[in-house]
């Protein structure tokens, strides 16, 4: 397995936020993690990314236990719901940021950034400052900045949460395309049922600090806890009401 998370536990004071977190993920796969606000999703991602220390447990990435490594050595990029573009840099420099930290040669940086910009369909925007971009464009730049450094694992914390429905759909399609193109392994946290089903090769559900990983999408859909059945019931009810009123 590419990613193995074993027995991770985290408490804040007397409250246990993460309870015995265990799961595995294959390389180049995406695991969707569904859960309500405050269930521990963000804490889990931050622990895997090295931004929070776990009280116990192991995180094995590509055969190496990274639980005690600092974030900069893990090659795991954490993406927030907010795009967090650097306001003093234009699109090109925002995407190039990680490469400049590595002090790569200028020619290589230009070539890599231009290639990513083309993949993100942002050719006309490279000289623009973040405040001149739309929400969707900003989120694309944020992706590009993460992908360009070729991370071992990408952690996405409700990345499309602040986008409107249309832009959100386009971003989901773009993300699927990019994960294939750049062989990305990722954990995709969302509170949107449809998004969880669409984005993940694997699906998990988090509730009160416990993570349940499903064998397949059918098991996820059939589990009453996830709320999928309620959703189906709602739409079916609406449909039958409409049919009755027509008759």
């Amino acid at each position: 397995m590419f990613l193995e998370v074993k027995n991770i536990v985290k408490s804040f004071g007397s409250e246990q936020i993460i309870k015995e977190l265990n799961f595995t993920l294959n390389a180049q796969n995406t695991m969707s993690i569904l859960g309500k606000s405050g269930c521990g999703k963000t804490s889990m991602l931050k622990i895997i990314g090295g931004l929070l220390s776990p009280d116990a447990g192991e995180i094995i990435l590509n055969g190496i236990n990274v639980a005690n490594q600092s974030p900069k050595h893990r090659k795991i990029v954490y993406l927030y719901q907010e795009d967090l573009l650097f306001p003093h840099l234009n699109v090109f420099e925002n995407i190039a940021f990680g490469l400049r930290l590595k002090k790569l040669p200028e020619n290589e940086i230009i070539q890599k950034v231009n290639s990513i910009i083309a993949s993100l369909e942002l050719e006309d925007q490279s000289g623009k400052m973040p405040h001149q971009l739309s929400g969707g464009q900003r989120q694309r730049v944020s992706f590009g900045r993460a992908i360009i450094i070729n991370p071992a694992l990408l952690l996405l914390d409700e990345p499309f949460g602040s986008l409107d429905a249309g832009t959100r759909q386009r971003m989901q399609e773009l993300f699927k395309k990019l994960t294939k193109e750049f062989d990305i392994t990722s954990l995709f946290v969302t509170h949107d049922l449809k998004e969880a089903i669409l984005m993940g090769d694997q699906i998990a559900f988090m509730q009160k600090g416990r993570l349940k990983v499903y064998q397949d999408k059918t098991e996820f859909i059939n589990d009453k806890e996830t709320g999928v059945q309620d959703e189906i019931g709602f739409w079916d009810g609406l449909k039958s009401k409409e049919t009755i009123s027509k008759h």
């Binding site: 090295g50 927030y80 650097f86 930290l101």
Partner: peptide, 26 residues
């Protein structure tokens, strides 16, 4: 969050200050 982002992108403390914090706080 911006500081954490720089760290996950591979930046050290010095790079965080000189490449991100100082320019933003100029």
């Amino acid at each position: 969050n911006l500081e954490d982002l720089v760290a996950t992108l591979g930046g050290n403390q010095l790079q965080t200050f000189f490449k991100m914090l100082f320019p933003i706080a100029k």
